[in-house]
Structure formats: C-alpha cells, structure tokens
C-alpha cells in the first residue's frame, strides 16, 4: 500500500505539476535552498546576469516538464509589470538623456533601468515558480516535520492550501446563484458594493463555523500531543544534498554580503 502517487492528490489550485525530474525527486529543502539562492543572485546580478538566470530557469523548467505552467504564469505576471515599467521609467520619469520624439520623450537610461528591474523580478519569479511547480506542499511539510518543526506551523500552511479550493468553488456557486436571482455583479458602482456583503458574508460565516468542530477533531486526534510527529514516506535526503544545501546557503549569503561590504 503506497500513498505515493501524487497524481491524483495534485490539487488543481496548486501550481504543483507532477513529474519525475531531478527537481521533483530532490528533497524539498534542497529545492527551497535553490530557490533562495536564485533570489539572492537575482538581487545582486547585473541585467545580463539576471537575463541568463531567467533563460536558464526557463530551460530547466522545460526539461523538468513544468515549463508550460511556469512560463504561462511568468507571462501573466510580467506583462503588466513590463508595460508599467516601460511607461514609468522610459517615458514619465524625467531623466537628462530624454530624447523628444514629438508626442513623447523617451529615455534610454530609463529603459535600461526598466529592463534591469524587469529581469530581476522575472528571475525571482522564475525561482519561486521552479520551486512551487516541482515541490508538492505535503512533501515540503513532511520535510519540515522531519526537521522537528512544530506541528502547528505545518498546520497553518497546509490547512489554507487544502481549504482554498472548496471555498473558491463555494464562492463561485454563491455568485452564480445570486446572479440567477438577479443580483447585479457587473453594473454600477452602487450595485457592486451592495453585492459585496451578499457574496462575502456567507463564506466568512462558513469558514468560521468549522472552528469549534475542527478544534474538537484535532484535539481528539492528539494534535500537538508531542513536539514531533511520525513522518510517513519521508522525502529522500542524502549526504550529497545536505552538503549541497550548506554550500548553496553559504554562497547565497556571500553574494549578498560582499557587495554590501563593497559599499562601505
């Protein structure tokens, strides 16, 4: 009997995409450290560096089978940011190198800066996406359990992840039901303000109504009886991964720290 197949367990609302790649198989802590290292690198690298980082991350995501989802999410998030950056830095902020093009004045320096920020955010985003698309939250929580992180901490992250989807579905059901009854969800300002409590209140009440019962259930199941719980199917770890993580953490700290020292 195995509870291994996460295929069925993979919830729709999660960005996690099942797979067999190295990143999928890596200990969740290793994936987490890789993400943190990438974020720290993105914070200090020049534009060319972050651009390479983004390309590398996209390549890795393609190779691990999570490419489609990651890139889609990347585009959805970065397109409006990109447009806003070009407008704000390329056109609006007054810089000495602004060249007048008739209707608008464009600043190459501003565009450079916009590109820099864009690539930095994109690299950080890709780092996060690589982590969340290849690491199932339950594996991450097991890894934390294994490390002796208090069960309460795990609960606080796991429970919302599990409850969001049923509640989102419920929100949509309420919205549709109210729409059928003639509630105006797209009309005037006033109409939408009136719609707000009608949609919101039942969901809030529902979310809170579980409180007493769930407290009973958790207490009945010996939740937090001991500081550590048994971990079933603990994620695989190895000496190599342990050392890899240590080195990567050290590098991450150094690459953030050295430029800081430089400034002083």
């Amino acid at each position: 009997m195995a509870s291994g197949s996460k295929q069925e367990a993979g919830k729709q609302s999660l960005l996690f995409t099942p797979g067999e790649s190295l990143l999928h198989k890596a200990n969740p802590l290793t994936s987490l450290v890789i993400m943190l290292w990438m974020i720290s690198a993105a914070a200090v690298l020049p534009t060319a560096g972050t651009a390479i980082l983004v390309l590398a991350a996209i390549t890795v995501s393609m190779a691990t089978g999570v490419g489609k989802r990651s890139v889609k999410r990347l585009l959805i998030t970065m397109t409006p940011i990109g447009v806003a950056l070009i407008v704000v830095h390329g056109l609006l902020i007054e810089r000495p190198d602004q060249t007048d093009l008739g209707l608008v004045a464009i600043s190459p320096d501003g565009l450079d800066y916009a590109l820099k920020v864009f690539m930095r955010v994109a690299a950080m985003l890709m780092a996060t996406l690589l982590f969340v698309t290849t690491t199932h939250p339950s594996e991450m929580l097991k890894a934390l359990d294994q490390r002796g992180v208090p069960p309460g901490v795990g609960y606080l992250v796991a429970s919302p992840l599990l409850l969001i989807e049923p509640f989102s579905d419920r929100a949509k059901a309420i919205r549709d039901a109210q729409r059928v009854r003639g509630l105006d969800l797209t009309g005037s300002w006033k109409a939408r303000i009136i719609a707000l409590p009608i949609l919101l209140m039942p969901l809030i009440t529902l979310a809170l109504s579980d409180l007493d019962q769930r407290a009973s259930i958790l207490s009945g199941r010996a939740f937090r009886a001991f500081p550590r719980r048994t971990v079933i199917n603990a994620p695989h770890d190895s000496t190599f991964q342990v050392w890899f993580r240590r080195i990567l953490v050290a590098v991450a700290v150094l690459q953030l720290g050295i430029p800081l020292l430089w400034h002083f």
């Binding site: 609960y155 979310a207 407290a215």
Partner: peptide
C-alpha cells in the same frame, strides 16, 4: 489549537 484553526480559516 483553536487560535491556529481561526488563523487558518482567516487565511482562506
């Protein structure tokens, strides 16, 4: 535990 459950519900 009750506060923890409240917090989780609040996140939702």
């Amino acid at each position: 535990t009750r506060t923890l459950i409240l917090m989780a519900a609040a996140v939702v």
